[in-house]
């Protein structure tokens, strides 16, 4: 059985916070649901981009935000293969 190495917890948490910030800054989709906003803010919770209402337009905006504002290149493929805030953050932490 293969095991992926775990990213350092503090690094993954920082990245999760960064991705959540990118979600909140998205110009295409505004997350208004208090329950979703609470989960976005909770480091222990996760939100899929689907339930956040992210269509393809919003996903591309997140890719742009991640590169231009946060300095992390995220291809559309990576975003689609890691389809939640937590999964993307973990992926970025492992990718380095």
């Amino acid at each position: 059985m293969d095991h992926q190495p775990s990213p350092p917890p503090h690094h993954a948490a920082r990245l999760r916070d960064l991705v959540a910030t990118g979600v909140r800054a998205n110009p295409v989709v505004t997350v208004n649901d208090p329950a979703l906003l609470a989960r976005l803010a909770d480091p222990a919770a996760d939100c899929s981009f689907e339930e956040l209402g992210f269509d393809s337009l919003a996903r591309m905006e997140l890719c742009i935000w991640m590169q231009v504002e946060a300095g992390f290149e995220v291809t559309e493929g990576e975003l689609l293969d890691h389809p939640s805030v937590g999964a993307l953050a973990t992926h970025l932490a492992l990718r380095g």
Binding site: R59, L80, P83
Partner: peptide
């Protein structure tokens, strides 16, 4: 899959 659909949509966009 949903990911396939989004890939195609992004390509079309």
């Amino acid at each position: 899959t949903t990911a396939d659909r989004y890939r195609l949509q992004i390509e079309a966009e």
